[in-house]
Structures are given as C-alpha cells and as structure tokens.
Amino acid sequence: MKKFKYLIPKTLDEAVSLNQSHEGSAIYVAGGTDVMVKIKSGKLAPDYLISLKHIGVGSQLGVNRETGALHIGGLVTHRTLETSSLIRLQYPIIHDAVQRIGSTQIRNVATIGGNLVNAVPSADGAIPLIALDARVNIYGSAGERTVDLVHFFEGPGQTVMDRGEIVTEIVVPKQPSRTGGAYQKFGRRAAMELPLIGVGVLITLEEGSNRCAKARITLGVAAPTPIRTLSAERYLVGKEITENTLNEAGKLAAEESRVRDSVRGLAWYRREMVEVLVQRMGVKCLQRIKETEAL
C-alpha cells in the first residue's frame, strides 16, 4: 500500500488551493470507504489525501422554504439520509436506495457526494436523484457551477468534474403534487449487494385523473453510466397509468437499456428485470401517490 499524507483543510477554498498546489498527486476524500479500498488494492496511489470532512460546508440537509427544493450537502452520509424522516416520508425513492447501500457501518461514514463522484455504473445513490431531476453544485478554483445530475456521469469512474472540483451540494427541485417515486435495487441476497440492476421510477399524475403528466425511468447497471430511458418516459406521458401501459414502458426501457453480461449477471436476465421492475416500481409510485393523498 502506498503511503500518503492526509491534509485537513478548514475551508472549501483551502481545500481547493491545497489541491492546486499538489496538482496531480492529491485526491479529495470524505468518508473514505471507497478511496481506502482503492488505495489498499493499488488502484489509487495518491501522495496526498485532502479531507473534506472539516471544511464546514456540505453537511446540510433540508428544504429551502422559498423554493421548496431539497438541498443535500455533498458530505451528508447515507445513514443521515436513511434515518431522516424528511427523506423517508417525502422522498421515499431516495430512502429506498440509501437504506440498501453497503452496510450500516459503511452508510455511517460514506457520503452522497462520494457516491456520485465514484461514478460506478450501479450508483445506487444517483438513480433516484436523476429521477428527481437533481442538479449538482460543483465548486472549484474557477468558482461554482451547476450541472444536471443526468449529465454528470461520462463513463465508469468518469464525471464532468474537472480536477480539483468538489461536489458541494445536490439540489432536488420541488416536485409537483401527485408525484410518487420508487427505487429497487435488485440483487442476489438481501443486503451487502451491488445490484444486478437498479430501477428508479418517478411518476407525476395529472390532477383528478390517472393520466401521466411526467415520468422518469432511470436505470443503474444498464449502461456504463446511470441512464434515463427517454423512450419509455415519453411513452407514458399523457397515458393512463395502468398495468398495460407500465408493462409497455417496461419493455421500452428494457429495449433502451444497454445491459451486458458480466460475472454479476447475464444481459438477457438484466433486461428481463428492467421490464419487470419498471412495471413494479410504477405500481409502487401509484400506491405512494394514493397514500400521500389519503393523509
């Protein structure tokens, strides 16, 4: 294992400037659960780790009263999201995902920002956030910028972030009323899984009807990055949400997926599961909309 120095900046700007002064030989670290494994295995060999845990920003979790948007700091742990009643009650699609990431021990430490930056194709944390049209605030030496999460990923381990940039915040815009979302991670055992496939569905219904006003169908492990399946989404908009239309959306999503064979699962099976789970998550969306309305 390569030896490294651990730097502890106290502000965001200090972190960025430390990164600049160790150009190419430093990486940021938050919870460190992924970074540590990669260093141990030799996949990463930095001279410096720059800790983001003490920069004083990125730990916020709450709804902006003016905009109604949900703000999740980049340093918020999965466990904080899992145990937040705000997330559980108002954003169950996020709760679905975060409660099944790693173990309690991992979730106590690992951050949502780290999960996004890690950019694995499964990215459990990202799938629901993409469905919610989340944007990512990124800070670097050139200042702050905002990127739609759906455009954040470029490939396995690849994002739009420039060297030295930091995910400070994820912002989920206020969702229209009559919106329901659900995510399922599909694996071989009940916990400690990387998914064979991950499926997130978010549906907004028109007022007073079962007609779909907006749909998001997002997939993990269906392509080199998390993806939206636009053809399936477009298909649903304007249609009654029924078992049939959800089935059809499932088929379209399966066709649009670019699943592959790997040690973890076969392509044909993954495609089948996209079809099945899009339909099931769609049904769950409807249930959740009804439950919310019944309150």
Binding site: R188, E255, E256, S257, R258, V259, R260, G265, L266, A267, W268, Y269, R271, E272
Partner: peptide, 22 residues
C-alpha cells in the same frame, strides 16, 4: 434466479430471451 426464470420460459415454450441490444 436466472436458471429458474429460464426454466419457466422454457416450460412456457419461450426459447430465446431476445436480442442483446449491446
């Protein structure tokens, strides 16, 4: 689950599980 689902499909007369888009 792959083996079970494949066996179910076979029993129902489905042999091919489709074209791999990739």
């Amino acid at each position: 689950p792959e083996k079970v689902l494949a066996a179910i499909k076979k029993k129902n007369g489905t042999v091919s599980c489709g074209i791999d888009a990739f």
